[in-house]
Simulated scan of single mutants.
Amino acid sequence: MLLWAVFPGCGHSEVEPLEQERGLSSTVDNPLRSTNSMTPNGLIMNGLIMNGLSTNGLIMNGLMTSGLNTATFKDWFNANPEGYSSMVMKYVVGCAVQSGQSRTWTNPLTHVSYSWNGVLGLTPDWASGLPATEREQQLLTACLAAHVNKYGLHVLVSVQGLNAKGVALPLETNELTTFSVLEGAFFGNLAVGGSAYVCRGSNLDGTESSLRACGLASQDNGVSVECPPLVHVGACSRYCVLDSTKTYFTQCTYGGKTYAPLTTRLRATDIYRCGDGVCQVSEKCGTGSHYNNCSDCGSSR
């Protein structure tokens, strides 16, 4: 699991990841809803995702024992800060492998054993040991990007879309009503050195914020201020096509390239508003009503 510490400061301060316990398998709340606590500074900004997907050998060697037992994977795993490679693999396996399956690996240098659980099953062929297809690379990118969280805190989200075989992720009873806020869609292909994109499914005004600052944000376009190098492209309606039920996006086209996306939804209670009298982690000290200058958190010191 990931452990988090809150450091004192004005209102709610930034959170930083503590060292991950080694050798522990990860858990999620249930197979269709994901907790996301990957921090951009711990993953994307450190290059563990952007470089790891193309250099750890798994994309070409498959996500089975044969791929995990290569020298390339061992070297990649041990070259990163302690705990981070296992965190990356927790989400890689969770995204790629179906629920009820897991992947285990013993580090030949430290003799520590790891077990990572499958959850969404987005890439059946890659999970079976075959090289990842382009669509599988795109879905893995979308899934990892959808789980990046600026603050490193767990936020329950609904993940929807099609796996690489075109099979829809199933919905639980009342899932769409519980997760009523359409956050947006994530897409791209980091495995070939490309970018990860996010489009906006709903709008936030200046008073509103969310722990999901990497996804649902007031920023419209450009490299994410909150979570670089994720790229905001604006409203999903400009780039993405909804399925026939208007539930999730089936494809997104940006820069002349069409991608397989994943759609995310939030609970309305996870959208915060400056002025409600409560200082949230996503709000900053100030005297106004904007989430970056919020009187709920007191004046700056």
Rank of each mutant, 00 (worst) to 15 (best):
T269C: 09
L43T: 15
N78A: 09
P17F: 11
S34N: 12
H147T: 15
V181M: 03
V15M: 14
N221V: 11
S195D: 14
P261G: 05
N51A: 07
T247E: 08
S66F: 08
R301F: 09
G166V: 03
P8C: 08
G194H: 00
C285M: 06
L32H: 15
G194F: 03
P17N: 15
D75E: 10
C10S: 12
L230G: 09
L176Q: 11
H154K: 15
K165V: 07
K90N: 15
F179S: 06
P8S: 14
R33E: 10
N78Q: 05
Y259Q: 07
G57P: 02
M50D: 13
C294I: 02
V6P: 13
G62S: 00
L120E: 12
G184N: 02
E134W: 07
P17V: 13
F249T: 10
S209P: 12
E16C: 12
R212F: 14
D29Y: 13
F249R: 15
Y272R: 11
T178F: 13
G194K: 09
N46A: 13
G288V: 00
T65Y: 01
M89T: 04
G188H: 06
L18F: 14
A96G: 04
V6A: 15
M38W: 10
Y291Q: 09
N107D: 13
V93C: 06
S26A: 14
C252R: 02
S85F: 01
T245L: 07
A235M: 09
G42C: 06
G118S: 12
R103D: 06
S13T: 14
T245G: 13
T39G: 10
Y91E: 05
P170T: 06
L2T: 15
W116L: 05
V231P: 02
L43N: 14
A185W: 05
V192K: 07
A185S: 12
A185E: 06
T72S: 03
L130E: 04
K284Y: 14
S218F: 13
T247G: 03
Q98L: 15
S86C: 05
I49A: 08
L139D: 07
G188K: 02
T269V: 12
T269F: 11
C240R: 05
